[in-house]
Structures are given as structure tokens and as C-alpha cells.
Amino acid sequence: MAVADLLVVMFDVIFYEINDIYFSYSFLNYTPIWSLNIALLCTAIDCSVWVTVAFTFDRFIAICCQTLRKKYCNERTASIIIATTYALSFVENIPIYFENEHLEMIDNATWFCNVKSSLFNVPLWVAYCFVDFTLTPFVPFVLIALLNAFTIKHVVQSNRVRKKLQRSEREDHNDPEMDNRRKSIMLLLAISGCFILLWTVTFVHSVCTQFVGIPFFSRNYNDPFAIMEHTGYMLQCLSSCTNTFIYAVAQVKFRRELMAIIEYPFVLTKSMISQNG
């Protein structure tokens, strides 16, 4: 998840947005390199989204399906799913590299790129765009919402049964199992809930483009749909920053290592003073 989100920040924010605004006509703006960067940023976005789905599904299995937990929730399965997600995302976005044509020709060199207008009348390309919209963000959006709902329902029901058993046995001490479930639910809701919240605008705009005929990449900033598109794009990029932060900060081991780094200069100074004294 961290690698996918970092790739989004690198290809989408740095190589695409920042380069386009502050370093126009750099080597990154040559049409072949620009097209490659667009394909890679779309791949990174798909990886980030589907790894989030995989994480949500993994938590669902770990909490709700105890019989499958040992077979599914292990390093081997995680490695296979992550590798498959990255590979499929790359293959699915290969056509994006070939969809563009140059915007300018300077000294026999092609600069920038734009989607070929002839593609909009090709049925195969229209079908590809629909499948691409379905895979990201429609299906992940629905899957994450459903998996979260099932997981929360299972945890609530299990906690009710566990509390009744504790009352019948007259146990008043803290229940470690319930504490672990509570922490898992908080982490799950923090990551997947943040994803849903920050992708909602993009999701609504994508639905409008598919079923209402609203155009993509509108530059008319007086148009509310254009404002919606660019706002959703900004929040989508923000989503790639928050997931890694939430997941890292939520881990006890990470917080310990972070505190050790912060305390290290003071410990080293104290040790040197003690040795000199």
C-alpha cells in the first residue's frame, strides 16, 4: 500500500502536475515520455485502489471467517495477491500509452499529448473506457463499502454474544479479544473510510460522465462539473497520502521506532556527557 501510494505521488503529483506547472517544456513533456507517465500514473492509481480493496478483504477474512484465516492471512498469499494486483494493473493500462497524440511539433520533436479524437467513435475504445470506469473506482467503491458493513456487523454481533457470556460468568476484567477487535475495526474504518470519503467526489463525477454525458478534463472553471472533477482529482491525490500515514501511525511497533529515533540524539548526548564526566 505504501509503495503504491508513493508511486501515485511520484508519477501523478511530481512528474505530471508539478512538472506541467513549473517545468514546462522539460524532457518529461516529450510526447512519448508524457504518454508513458500517464500510463504509469494510471497504473499506480489502480494499484493503490486495489491494494486498499485487498487490505479490506484481508481484514474481513481475518475477523469474520475464522476457518479461512490461517490459509488466507499469511505472507505467501499476501505476496501473490500484491504481485497479481500490480501485474494486472499494468496490463490493464497499456492501451493508455497508445491513446494519445502530440499537441505541438517544435524542431521535429513532438511535445505534450492529447487523447486522439478518432478514438471516441471506436466501439472497442468506448467499451474499454467503460470497463476501466467499472474497475476503478466503481467496483472498489462498492466492495469496500460492503466488506466494511459485513465486518462491522459481525464484530457487533460477536461482541454482544461475548458480553452476555461474560455477564453470565460474572467476569468483570478486560477482554483482550474485544480490545483486539476494536483496534482492528478502528484501523479498517480509518483506511477504507478515508478512501470512500476522499474518492466520493471522483466517483460521482465518473458516474455523471458515463450516464449523463458530462465530458472529462473540462477547462471551463465556471462549469460546476469541471469544479467537481478537479476537486475530486485533488482529494484523490490526497487519499494516496493519508492511507500510509494512518496505517503506519496505527502500528505500535512503528510508534516505538519513531520515538526511538526522536530520543536517540538525547540519549547519545547523555551518554557522551556521562563518559566525559
Score class of each variant (00 low, 15 high):
A2P: 04
L6F: 12
M10Y: 14
D12C: 02
V13H: 02
V13W: 03
N19R: 01
L28C: 05
N29K: 09
Y30M: 10
T31L: 01
I33C: 02
W34Q: 12
W34T: 07
L36Q: 12
N37M: 04
I38W: 08
A39E: 15
I45G: 09
D46L: 03
V49H: 03
V49Y: 05
V51R: 01
F55K: 11
F57T: 06
F57L: 08
R59D: 06
C73Q: 08
T77P: 00
I81P: 00
I81V: 15
Y86I: 13
A87P: 01
L88N: 07
L88R: 11
E92F: 15
I94L: 10
I96W: 01
I96F: 02
N100Y: 15
E104G: 03
A109Q: 13
W111F: 10
K116D: 15
K116G: 10
F120E: 09
V122T: 11
V122I: 06
P123C: 14
C129P: 00
F130P: 00
F130T: 15
F133H: 12
T134V: 11
P137V: 03
V142H: 05
L143A: 06
I144T: 08
I144F: 05
I152N: 05
V156G: 00
V156K: 13
S158W: 11
N159T: 13
N159I: 03
N159M: 08
V161E: 05
V161M: 01
R162L: 06
R162W: 01
S168K: 03
R170D: 08
R170G: 02
H173R: 12
N180Y: 12
R181A: 04
R181G: 02
R182T: 15
R182I: 14
L187H: 10
L188E: 04
S192A: 11
C194F: 07
F195Q: 02
I196Q: 12
T200S: 07
T200D: 00
V201E: 10
C208V: 09
T209Q: 07
S218R: 05
N222M: 06
P224N: 04
F225C: 08
I227N: 03
M228Y: 07
E229R: 03
G232R: 07
G232D: 09
Y233W: 09
Q236P: 00
L238M: 09
S239P: 00
T242G: 02
T244K: 01
F245K: 07
I246Q: 01
V249C: 04
A250R: 01
Q251C: 11
E257Q: 10
L258E: 14
M259S: 15
A260H: 12
A260N: 11
A260L: 09
I261W: 04
V267H: 04
T269A: 08
K270N: 07
K270S: 07
S271Q: 13
S271L: 01
I273T: 13
G277L: 14
